[in-house]
Design a protein around this nucleic acid. Structure first.
Lengths: 285, 285
DNA sequence: GTCTGTGAAGGGCTTCACAGCT
DNA sequence: AGCTGTGAAGCCCTTCACAGAC
């Protein structure tokens, strides 16, 4: 299910009975916010897929900044990001006019614009629950800090892990989760626990006021409609590949025939979902 | 002649310009395979999104088997998987008739059917490149084995890691990658290296005959059209959440108003894209 | 009556093609 | 002439509603 990164719509999400609350809340919120808190970064109602790709563009722009590039055309940027130039222009157009016709986009300006649109300029405070194999890897993952995310708390239920230090933070007892989240003012919770603990942990995060959760558990979680969740399931990724592998083996000669002199193509991902896609920085040095 | 069951019309999988190679290969393969390798599991041309969800259903069915359930209705299965019942039925219908009207689906039979469709009954052999933080977590992740994936090789470029043992496998020098892949008959490659090594590693995998790659690097990779790639980018997931968080904060009162007594809803995720999603088993115990 | 399988309607996202500014 | 921004067309997927089997 969800991997698809897709699916949570915002505005007009035609939801099936049960989800209708989500659609309603978003609509109402949009109307209200539009009049009151308009002056701040005009974060509009972007299409699901666009939000995902904006993060990709941001990564590419970062590389370009480092390389000293100041102006970039939609064609160049699109190629570097692995998408079509039309789609890139359409995506950027949701943020308003960003480029100069006949010239291109100002790298620095565009970066700032996207960061503001994604809310990355607000500095998110992240708590991570579950410090097993994957959790530890995430805790040590340096890419977050460089992207405006600050890890502020680690939690686990195992006495063996509580009290240990990982990357400058002490692992705390998950029993303190709720109180600690409030105190730390966490805005995002990452769940890397076993399946059977995931729902309980999420409930705790929600009670503590966290409204955005990234889960690596495979179980579908039930949450109140005002909480946004995103899931990553490694085994599903593998299984999807398995399907493709099976198909490829059957049509081997056809693939070879085409693979020969064909130009390489940029990779696209999941997106899932509907894909989902990319961002910048090394994961496992 | 050989029209055993009604053809569900998928063959025509329209692809958009850039991806046309995929469509072409599929079409050609379909025609050829239909005559030659027909008897094996009839893996048809499933919609992208459906493939992703099938993996979810499989996980839920596994839980049901353990619980001793033998028959399940589309409504029950859909709820457990977090999707609508119509969608579930539509998804399953691509595999041909699987249930009994007025009764439901046979859990065991359906499981076998989906596993065959996803090619999980073929036993995939996986090599992992990059044994840093994330790579080690993946190597130790027990969920793969239970799902028909066998980890057969670990590779890294760091002398500190080469020769060390992880979960029963010795880490080998990435210089041996290509030869070892052929020898090990790997069908899936997992890339968990830093960005700057990802492209090189992928090239090696492709040269060694691997046609399916799961990458955790953030850079878009260029590959020949006959190679299937799937990417997971943790920072992008966080950034998408960030966007949601920002929107939520603006429309706070609206969300609260509705959040109160609203019933919980099942979580849906990413993917993407072409979404992607879940599977069964603990990730970080 | 119950529950599956499916044609048809509807929506979102991608692609095309071109209008418009520099 | 070059490149961005955007309406329109097309595609894929989801949802609805019901026909059909038990």
């Amino acid at each position: 299910m969800s991997e698809q990164h897709q699916s949570h719509g915002f505005s007009a999400r035609g939801a099936s009975g049960a989800d209708s609350t989500t659609a309603a809340s978003t609509t109402a919120a949009g109307a209200a916010a539009a009049e009151t808190a308009a002056p701040r970064a005009e974060v509009k109602d972007l299409p699901q897929a666009t939000v995902t790709r904006l993060a990709t563009y941001l990564r590419v722009l970062g590389v370009m900044t480092d390389a000293g590039t100041h102006i970039v055309s939609s064609e160049e940027l699109a190629t570097a990001a692995g998408v079509g130039s039309s789609m890139l222009r359409k995506d950027l157009s949701f943020l308003g006019p960003n480029g100069v016709r006949g010239v291109g986009y100002d790298v620095t300006r565009l970066r700032a614009r996207i960061e503001a649109a994604l809310g990355l300029d607000q500095g998110h405070r992240v708590v991570l629950v579950g410090v097993g194999n994957l959790g530890q890897a995430l805790a040590r993952y340096g890419g977050f800090g460089r992207r405006g995310f600050t890890m502020v708390g680690l939690f686990d239920s195992s006495p063996d892990r509580i009290g240990t230090e990982i990357d400058g933070l002490i692992v705390r007892d998950v029993a303190e989760l709720e109180a600690a989240c409030r105190e730390l003012e966490a805005t995002i919770g990452v769940v890397a626990t076993p399946d059977d603990a995931a729902q309980r942990v999420c409930d705790g995060l929600v009670d503590a006021g966290v409204r955005c959760i990234l889960s690596f558990a495979s179980a579908p979680l039930e949450l109140p409609p005002h909480v946004e969740i995103r899931r990553v399931d490694l085994a599903v990724e593998m299984q999807v590949l398995s399907f493709r592998s099976a198909r490829r083996t059957d049509g081997e000669h056809a693939a070879v025939a085409l693979g020969g002199g064909a130009p390489r193509r940029a990779a696209r991902s999941t997106s899932k979902d509907l894909g989902s896609t990319r961002n910048g920085s090394v994961i496992a040095p």
